[in-house]
Simulated scan of single mutants.
Amino acid sequence: MQNPAIEIPASDFADLPVTASHGPLRIEYRWANNAAGGVKNDAPIAVFLHEGLGSIAMWRDWPQSLCERLGMRGLVYSRPGYGLSTPRPHHVKWPVNFMTDQARDILPALLDALGIDLRERERMWIIGHSDGGSIALLYAALHPDALAGAVAIAPHLFVEDLSVQSIAQTRLLYETTELRSKLSRYHADVDSAFYGWNDIWLNPAFRDWSIAAELASIRKPLLAVQGYDDNYGTMAQIDTIPEHVPHAQLARLDACGHSPHRDAPDRLNEAIAAFVSRHRQ
C-alpha cells in the first residue's frame, strides 16, 4: 500500500525504458553538492548506491558531506522497489542475479536518461554500501572503462551463515516490532522494499550466489571498507577481493558495524578522501 505521508524531501524523477531485465521504471534521484552553493557543473560525479533496505532519504546527509570533502557532485538515487522509485509488484520476486541486473542495465540506463556521457563516466566514482557495494563492484567489473574508481562499503561477495541469520532476524523484527512503521518513512511501498530484499536473501536458491570470480575484470582503483562488528558479514567478504583484484585496497574499521557511514562517518570519509586523492584524474 502506498504511504501518502512519506517524509522524503522533494526529488526529481527519471523514466527508464524497457530492457531485457525490467519493464519501464520511474527512478527517484537527487543531486548533492551540485551547482548553486556547491561545486562547478564540470566537477566529477560520485554515484551513491544504497543498501538493501535503503533509499535516498536513508542516506541522510552523508552523500552531501562526503561530496563536499571530495569536491565532487553527488548523484543519489533510489533503486527500483525503494524510496519513491517504481515499487516491486508484490507478486514479483527478485531473481538471484538481481544485483547484476542493477549494475549491467539499470544504472547505465539512469546515466543515459540524465545525459551523463562517456567522458563524464570516465571521471565518475561509484560508491556503494552493502547490496549497493556489491552492485558497485559489479558495475566496475561489467563496465571497466566507464568509471574512474569504486568504493565498496560492507559489500557482499557471497552468502554467509551470519548474513542469513541476521536477515532472518530482521524479518522477525519487521513483522513483530515497530520496524515496519519506521521503514515506512523512507519508502512509498514499504512491503515492496522489505520483502523484495528479504525474500531473495532467504531464498535457498540464493545460498550459492557469489560474484567473487566476476571481479577479475576490474581495472580501475578500488577501495573496500568493512567494520569489524558487522553483523551482516565477516571480514572474509572484503578479504576475498584482492584474490581477484590484486590492486584493491582494504580499510578495516574498529568499533564499527554494517553501516560505517552512520557508525564511523569521519573515519570513513577520511579513508575515502585519502584513497580518491591518490587516484584522482
Rank of each mutant, 00 (worst) to 15 (best):
residue 134 S to R: 06
residue 190 V to W: 01
residue 103 A to S: 11
residue 120 E to P: 08
residue 185 R to Y: 14
residue 99 M to A: 10
residue 67 C to K: 05
residue 40 K to Y: 00
residue 36 A to M: 09
residue 110 L to V: 05
residue 271 A to I: 08
residue 136 A to G: 13
residue 144 P to M: 14
residue 120 E to G: 02
residue 22 H to C: 10
residue 247 H to V: 02
residue 277 S to D: 15
residue 236 A to I: 08
residue 33 N to A: 09
residue 139 Y to Q: 00
residue 61 D to N: 15
residue 246 P to E: 13
residue 14 A to L: 01
residue 19 T to D: 08
residue 237 Q to K: 05
residue 36 A to H: 15
residue 122 E to K: 14
residue 168 A to Y: 01
residue 2 Q to E: 13
residue 121 R to K: 13
residue 8 I to K: 10
residue 264 A to F: 14
residue 13 F to V: 12
residue 129 H to I: 10
residue 26 R to S: 13
residue 164 V to R: 06
residue 202 L to A: 04
residue 128 G to W: 01
residue 23 G to S: 02
residue 100 T to W: 11
residue 66 L to D: 06
residue 127 I to K: 06
residue 14 A to D: 08
residue 118 L to K: 00
residue 253 L to W: 11
residue 183 L to P: 07
residue 133 G to W: 02
residue 3 N to A: 03
residue 194 F to A: 11
residue 89 P to C: 02
residue 264 A to D: 04
residue 45 I to G: 01
residue 240 T to V: 09
residue 82 Y to E: 00
residue 148 A to C: 07
residue 9 P to A: 09
residue 245 V to L: 07
residue 146 A to V: 05
residue 83 G to Q: 06
residue 123 R to V: 10
residue 193 A to T: 11
residue 172 L to P: 00
residue 44 P to H: 08
residue 249 Q to I: 14
residue 99 M to P: 08
residue 204 P to Y: 10
residue 241 I to E: 09
residue 274 A to E: 15
residue 100 T to A: 07
residue 126 I to E: 04
residue 157 L to M: 13
residue 264 A to Y: 11
residue 245 V to E: 02
residue 226 Q to F: 06
residue 129 H to V: 03
residue 10 A to H: 13
residue 175 E to I: 00
residue 141 A to Q: 07
residue 213 A to N: 13
residue 266 D to R: 13
residue 20 A to L: 12
residue 197 W to R: 08
residue 187 H to V: 09
residue 109 A to M: 00
residue 206 F to H: 10
residue 264 A to C: 11
residue 278 R to I: 14
residue 77 Y to N: 03
residue 235 M to E: 13
residue 96 V to C: 10
residue 259 S to W: 07
residue 85 S to K: 03
residue 70 L to Y: 05
residue 143 H to F: 02
residue 74 G to Q: 06
residue 96 V to R: 06
residue 115 G to T: 09
residue 163 S to Q: 15
residue 98 F to I: 03
residue 166 S to G: 02
residue 77 Y to D: 12
residue 234 T to P: 08
residue 104 R to I: 14
residue 279 H to R: 14
residue 115 G to L: 12
residue 6 I to C: 07
residue 188 A to C: 05
residue 150 A to S: 14
residue 51 E to F: 15
residue 75 L to V: 08
residue 110 L to K: 03
residue 165 Q to A: 06
residue 59 W to R: 04
residue 201 W to N: 14
residue 226 Q to T: 04
residue 90 H to V: 10
residue 128 G to C: 05
residue 147 L to E: 04
residue 41 N to W: 01
residue 172 L to H: 00
residue 266 D to T: 12
residue 74 G to V: 14
residue 8 I to E: 00
residue 46 A to D: 12
residue 240 T to C: 13
residue 147 L to I: 09
residue 205 A to N: 15
residue 98 F to W: 10
residue 130 S to T: 01
residue 178 E to Q: 15
residue 62 W to S: 14
residue 162 L to N: 02
residue 92 V to Q: 15
residue 207 R to F: 03
residue 239 D to T: 04
residue 156 H to W: 03
residue 42 D to V: 04
residue 163 S to N: 14
residue 129 H to E: 02
residue 107 L to R: 08
residue 163 S to K: 13
residue 60 R to D: 15
residue 81 G to S: 04
residue 275 F to T: 11
residue 133 G to I: 06
residue 35 A to R: 12
residue 111 L to V: 03
residue 171 R to T: 11
residue 212 A to R: 15
residue 212 A to L: 13
